[in-house]
């Protein structure tokens, strides 16, 4: 019966957890741990297809979604993931403007600790903010995006989607296009795909993509055609319109003309290359509508897989926590 079976009973699910208490970034995950998360997500994906979409793994555990930045997609995905594992979920949305004048992050953390919270899923506009919480709390902290730094569960769901669609990640070429400099998704995917043996290309205007990324392992392109040549995955990042106001783009139109992905340009990549986007999309700016909705697009699958991957992360952190309690 779906309701009573535990995750450990699911076929192929290992009982070893993650090495660290927290999931702060892709940088601190080993290749084996990434594989473990993807395999676990495979087992958990079926839960979503059950008539009653719940397993009792996290019953009695409390998950707090602590969001200092507006997010619908990621927060909802984590909320569903926690709920499907039977955890109690609390959402705390802190307006970004109150960060400076309000309670310090550390005080917020101590308050949550006093309420015996087990997991904190955190999004914050400051790079490194989840690290402060992680250092100071016994609770497991999951980074749901910190500043320009990392968004590890996004990279994990992207890796999952690629493996699911292409059968493997190793040896594949992924081209990420857009504002790489200010993108936590780009950094996490660079590290994640490199660790899993893929080639990672970055393509964007020089103002949004510095050559320094070469030293971090990316191949750097400023023109779309050579960047897409032979690519298995075309990964399109969201363009923030404020980049023009900041003087980092001559105009948004200019960006679209040079870097916007159209059906015509998709042909520069490998036939059947996957089209991915972390959302939310600016249709007609970085991605043409017919590309977003076209046969090669796996953008909807990314969202669907996100829940299973986040369940896997919560589950594997719980395995580690349970071991610690014993």
């Amino acid at each position: 019966m779906a309701v009573t079976e535990t995750v450990a009973d699911l076929p192929g699910t290992p009982v070893t957890g993650l090495a660290k208490k927290d999931l702060l970034d892709m940088e601190s995950l080993s290749k084996e741990e990434i594989k473990l998360i993807l395999d676990t997500a495979d087992s958990l994906k079926d839960v979503a297809r059950h008539p009653i979409k719940k397993v009792p793994t996290l019953r009695g555990r409390t998950v707090v979604n602590l969001f200092y930045e507006v997010s619908t997609r990621t927060r909802t995905s984590f909320e569903l993931a926690a709920a499907r594992l039977s955890a109690d979920v609390v959402n705390i949305n802190v307006a970004t403007s109150s960060v400076a004048k309000g309670e310090t992050l550390l005080d917020t953390a101590r308050t949550l600790e006093a309420m015996s919270v087990d997991f904190i899923v955190m999004r914050h506009s400051c790079s490194g903010a989840p690290h402060i919480l992680a250092r100071n709390l016994d609770a497991s902290v999951i980074n749901a995006g910190d500043g320009w730094h990392e968004h590890p569960t996004q990279a994990l769901l992207d890796l999952y989607t690629v493996r699911d669609k292409l059968g493997s990640i190793e040896g594949k070429t992924i081209t990420l296009i857009g504002d790489l400099k200010h993108s936590r998704v780009a950094r996490s995917n660079l590290i994640g795909f490199k660790k899993m043996g893929a080639r990672v290309r970055f393509c964007g205007p020089p103002t949004l993509l510095s050559d320094g990324f070469r030293d971090l392992g990316a191949e750097v392109f400023h023109e779309l055609k050579p960047a897409l040549d032979g690519a298995d995955i075309v990964y399109i990042l969201r363009l923030q319109f404020e980049r023009h106001r900041q003087g980092l783009l001559p105009s948004v139109k200019y960006y679209t003309r040079h870097y916007g992905v159209t059906a015509e340009r998709v042909k520069w990549a490998k036939p059947g290359a996957l089209i991915m986007h972390p959302g939310p999309m600016n249709r007609g700016v970085e991605i043409a509508p017919d590309v977003a909705d076209g046969p090669q697009s796996v953008i909807v699958e990314q969202v669907f897989n996100g829940v299973a991957v986040r369940m896997a992360v919560l589950y594997l952190l719980e395995v580690r926590r349970a071991k610690g309690e014993r």
């Binding site: 490194g128 500043g147 730094h149 990392e150 990324f213 030293d215």
Partner: peptide
């Protein structure tokens, strides 16, 4: 402004 700031995502 260098490799470490790029890696950490700090301005």
């Amino acid at each position: 402004d260098g490799l470490v700031s790029l890696r950490l995502g700090l301005p």
